[in-house]
Design a protein around this nucleic acid. Structure first.
Lengths: 358, 358
DNA sequence: CTGTTAGCGCATTCAC
DNA sequence: GTGAATGCGCTAACAG
């Protein structure tokens, strides 16, 4: 049998309560006694049974998820994944609440962070916006020892515990590599559609993309970035205008959301050279466009994985235990027509598949 | 508070023991009583606390992992991941043993499966070989209600509970798509290096690859498959001969192991057209070759994810509970030079990274 | 400062 | 057939 608290109590010649105090670093133990107990723990190779501890504490983890509101397929999918996690709450001992705030609005996000802090949760997950005020708000949470993980978009310079999202520079570089190679010998400039340079993930994707295009495929000029605010209507207008103005455009990299608009613009197009399109996030619309050959590749981040990972990490930080690093690395999924996952599993699936939402 | 067994006992007007009998479908309860209890359970919305149940039972899950032995980077990496899981055993209440058997040897695998069965484990994970004897051995396990998951290579026609591995047909198709597009306008035949047509994953990759090459890129003829037995020396010889015989080879798809040999052959090559190389599994060697530009893309399956997933599924099957479908889908990772994960995380990593082993 | 005691939610003897 | 009592490993009052 694995050693228990009783064994260490016996080995150290103290009572359970004292053992518990040193295990949980609580005050009220003399230095010598603490020493004795710690030695015993070491000696008999005690490993704490977290499940039993949580049972005794009737522990629940109140977590707050702060997401952008609005009509954004990916973000709504993310929210669906958080709801799926809420459905698992009884089994996972979590109590998750969702707060939505207007996108690209630092003030609203700061307010939400401060409100969350007032409820003293066990952890906060937030889709960050890059701004000094937001950094300060996150650091206030950390100041109260509340674990924070950033979700999808990171917040460099803050004291957040962890980032649950992809390496967006690598994503941009990958997009450029694929674009350059898919373009093969063809010539022509490449357009970039972004959401907003206010969020770090978009900026990083652009940086990675530009770097590789310039290094490895200097033959393709980059057109000025189109900022579509992740809004389909605006995206459609901007892409439409760009295609009309430069019929020789050979490629489009859509690094943000609003792909419905991009796809509409592509469908409306009647002339010009064939254009290679690479977009982010697998949604109902991008999936269909990939199948139709309108989009050539989709870079995706698995929202379900991100949410589950955020919860695991928040729990681990709240308990002060380690996580399995590799399990928490969010991959950049690359989808071609040929490796699209099925829309529904059918048999033992319990939560929304990635890409069903819009 | 969540309802507990006490609540349902009170609601049904029976004792804890009776409730427990009903919950665990044990005999010794009259039909009427059972009815009463089941209604109460339904009415108050009882959800069983699995952690508490496991605590009371002091449950451990004895699992057996059966892997091919031999000098195969990927398989040794897989084994390392199982060892990492063994390191987590105390926390996860598992007791995992590893059995290795000679590769591509159905008899040895059957013997290992039968031996495992004799120990009545809570579950078995096995890298399958496609053979009627193996199917029968797996079904014998299932006959004793021992959950079985296939790992990496599936066993169609068997009663295995689950497959923890990638969609290999899709992997082959994806390889072909990338190959065709990377080749762009260039012409020339394409060679395929496999391990053995005895294992299903290799056959499926070949099928997917051939299908898409024929459909979409008929300009590139497929050379006869080279069967390298996942052996570096043999692979090097076969590829060397093929390149010498056909200097106009434009692409090579390596769908099995033994990539060290492939890379050596590529390095030795002094003339001929540039060749596009796509290989499977990120290892020390393929990683270096990708960075050197010798390999153009690597399709990978995350061995760590596969092992963790197999364990989760075996546990769930043993307990008769559902799993999160999406979490158990193993992705086909596509790595270019630009999205290679770092070799080590450094901070909160606790287990071997994919691709460090050979 | 330290020890005793009673649970957390569930499973499992043993009586009745 | 059914119920009462005890314990899984740990935490948290409450005494001393």
């Amino acid at each position: 049998m694995r050693p228990t608290v009783h064994d260490i109590a016996a080995a150290a010649g103290v009572s359970l309560a004292t053992v518990d105090r040193v295990l949980n670093r609580r005050p009220g133990v003399r230095g010598v006694t603490r020493e004795k107990v710690e030695q015993a723990i070491e000696r008999i190779g005690y490993i704490r049974d977290v499940a039993a501890a949580n049972l005794a504490k009737s522990r629940v983890y109140p977590f707050v998820f702060i997401l952008p509101s609005g009509d954004n397929s990916f973000m709504r999918g993310l929210e669906a994944q958080v709801r799926a996690a809420i459905g698992r709450s009884p089994a996972e001992r979590t109590a998750i609440s969702i707060v939505t705030v207007p996108a690209f609005n630092p003030e609203a996000l700061v307010a939400a962070l401060d409100e969350a802090r007032a409820t003293s949760p066990s952890g906060v997950a937030v889709v960050a916006i890059d701004s000094p005020d937001v950094i300060a708000a996150v650091d206030r949470l950390r100041g109260e020892r509340i674990p924070v993980v950033t979700l999808v978009s990171d917040l460099a310079g803050s004291k957040r515990d962890h980032f649950a999202g992809v390496d967006n520079i690598a994503a941009g570089r990958t997009a450029a590599s694929l674009m350059g190679r898919f373009l093969g010998g063809r010539s022509g400039p490449v357009a970039v559609l972004a959401g907003s340079m206010l969020v770090r993930d978009h900026r990083e994707r652009l940086d990675g993309f530009s770097a590789v295009m310039n290094e490895s495929f200097p033959g393709h000029a980059l057109l000025p970035v189109l900022e579509g605010q992740d809004d389909p209507a605006l995206a459609e207008q901007l892409v439409g205008e760009a295609l009309a103005a430069s019929p020789e455009i050979a490629g489009i990299y859509s690094l943000g959301a609003g792909n419905r608009g991009l796809i509409a613009a592509l469908k409306r197009r009647r002339n010009g050279v064939p254009v290679c399109v690479i977009a982010h996030e697998l949604t109902q619309h991008t999936r269909a466009a990939l199948n139709d050959g309108l989009i050539d590749a989709i870079l995706n981040q698995d929202a379900g994985h991100e949410v589950r990972s955020a919860i695991r990490v928040l729990k681990a930080k709240a308990d002060g235990v380690a996580v399995i690093g590799a399990q928490e690395r969010i991959r950049i999924d690359i989808f071609l027509k040929d490796n699209l996952p099925f829309e529904r599993d059918g048999h033992d699936n319990q939560e929304p598949e990635p890409g069903r939402q819009d």
